[in-house]
């Protein structure tokens, strides 16, 4: 497995200031509360894996962090600034990159046009965005005039994650990066996550596939029923997650 060979910075959470702090966050869809007071601290420069079964509220938490959903209580702090009521696009321009579940691409735009959208982050030229992306994913270069939605799942996900690559975010949120993808492509994508981590970016990733996530993670937590059930080192969490998933 190539992923294991990626150098992951050994960081102790205690010595670092948090890049992202979630404090007693509650959120609901209509009358139905799905997050019942979530506390989570992601140290700067760490790769934090958030695990848990379907319906635990992981994706909802990411929506709250990225400003797509307002928490009903609690607060989200990025760096040292509370997010407050900043709209999603402002958050994105201040250095939060969120790659949503499914495919974080515009299926009816071509690859190039998708890359053009990434320049809304500010301070980027189309040219540099294209160069950087094609250098990392030569396959996308071949498909630059193709509609993104007609590419394979793996290529779509490469395009999605290229946003994290070119926009130089401070905090990166990855939701189910490996969903529905073949193992080979998953490891290719996680190789890139490892590279981004090595550049010192703070990454919060939500995964159902425990092992993949834990290969790059420096810290992990398990979320069940809208709450953080336990938090610890990746290897501890791997065992814990398996018992949550298969109830063995």
């Amino acid at each position: 497995m190539t992923v294991a060979s990626i150098p992951v910075p050994e960081l102790s959470p205690a010595t670092l200031s948090p890049a992202l702090a979630i404090r007693a966050v509650r959120a609901s869809y209509g009358r139905i509360e799905v997050l019942h007071g979530v506390d989570l601290t992601v140290p700067a420069g760490s790769v934090f894996a958030l695990l848990g079964p379907n319906g635990a509220g992981k994706s909802t938490l990411l929506k709250v962090i990225s400003g797509q959903m307002r928490p009903t209580a609690g607060e989200v702090v990025i760096g040292d600034k509370p997010v407050g009521k900043l709209p999603t696009e402002k958050l994105a321009r201040t250095g939060l990159c969120s790659i949503p579940e499914g495919r974080g691409i515009f299926p009816n735009l071509t690859v190039r046009e998708n890359l053009r959208i990434w320049t809304y982050r500010g301070g980027l030229s189309v040219k540099s965005v294209e160069e950087q992306t094609y250098a990392t994913f030569p396959r996308l270069s071949e498909r630059r005039k193709q509609l993104a939605g007609t590419m394979s799942g793996g290529e779509q996900q490469m395009l999605a994650i290229s946003r994290a690559l070119v926009t130089d975010p401070k905090v990166l949120l990855l939701d189910e990066l490996s969903m529905g993808l073949a193992p080979l492509i998953v490891s290719e994508l996680y190789e890139l996550v490892g590279t981004l981590a090595a550049q010192g970016k703070t990454i919060l990733l939500v995964e159902q596939f425990v092992t993949t996530a834990l290969l790059v993670a420096t810290r992990a937590a398990i979320m069940v029923h809208g709450k953080i059930q336990q938090e610890g080192t990746p290897s501890d969490m791997a065992t814990a997650a398996l018992s949550v998933y298969l109830s063995s």
Binding site: S66, G67, Q68, P87, T88, E89, A92, R93, C97, S98, I99, P100, G104, I105, F106, P107, N108, L109, E113, R116, I117, W118, Y120, R121, G122, R163, T167
Partner: peptide, 19 residues
């Protein structure tokens, strides 16, 4: 391109930094 993108996925457009 942004006008077409908003049709596809307004949420993702916002996450990319456009309103």
């Amino acid at each position: 391109v942004g006008l077409r993108a908003v049709v596809d996925d307004p949420g993702l457009l916002a996450m990319s930094g456009a309103s």
